[in-house]
């Protein structure tokens, strides 16, 4: 008996992923993750504006088996759903549908779920459908910083203790990173932080400082 690290359903989606590609003239699109840091997923959607449903959805993956399999299942699950329903599709749903993913792989596979939500958000922002505007808190910022990778470790900068402090005052977010400014990844991390925090509606400026 050959033992593979994943179950049959996951392997099947990995070998023959559904909904692969990129929709031209998509109504919403998003890229989650970054090649400098680890896995990356792109999601494009086509939306029926009358029914507010996802008519077509495609993904691309630069990632491991669980990342690819999750991209495949999540696009299956979202197709035909209303935007509100699709937003609620979670990593847990994907994992259950796939017959169980190893918990250690949550990090790689959750990217596909985030890609789906980001593509929907992109559609809503473009079409002025964003209504809820909750004020940004340090918690929101930290949550977003958890998506910034530390390329040295392949883990996020919060988990690897690179974030020394975070403050948010008068629309200005200041993040202090425990790294030398001349470090080979300093610039990549700085850009990544700005990219993740700047879209918050009440953030005007993102300042990243290095300790060294």
């Amino acid at each position: 008996m050959t033992k593979f690290p994943y179950n049959e359903i996951v392997l099947e989606h990995f070998k023959h992923p559904h909904n692969v590609g990129e929709i031209e003239e998509a109504d919403g699109k998003a890229i989650e993750g970054s090649p400098a840091c680890g896995d990356m997923v792109s999601v494009t959607i086509k939306v029926d504006p009358d029914k507010n449903t996802i008519d077509d959805i495609k993904f691309q993956s630069y990632g491991c088996a669980s990342n690819i399999a999750t991209g495949s299942i999540i696009t299956d699950l979202a197709r035909g759903k209303t935007l509100d329903e699709a937003k609620k599709v979670s990593w847990k749903d994907a994992s259950e549908e796939l017959g169980g993913l190893p918990p250690i792989k949550a990090h790689c596979s959750v990217l596909a779920v985030e890609g789906l939500r980001a593509a929907i958000r992109d559609y809503e922002e473009r079409n002025g459908l964003v209504t809820e505007r909750e004020p940004t808190t340090l918690k929101t910022i930290e949550k977003r910083l958890k998506h910034v990778m530390n390329p040295l470790m392949g883990l996020d900068i919060v988990r690897t203790d690179l974030v020394k402090s975070v403050s948010f005052e008068g629309g200005i977010v200041k993040v202090v990173v425990d790294l030398d400014e001349s470090h080979q990844f300093a610039q990549a991390i700085k850009n990544d932080i700005a990219e993740k925090i700047e879209p918050l509606w009440d953030v005007e400026l993102v300042e990243v400082e290095f300790t060294g």
Binding site: G38, D39, G63, C64, N67, I104, K105, H107, C108, P151, L152, M153, G154, L155
Partner: peptide, 9 residues
Amino acid sequence: ACFSKSLEA
């Protein structure tokens, strides 16, 4: 990193 036990590259 995805191959390793520690998820470290």
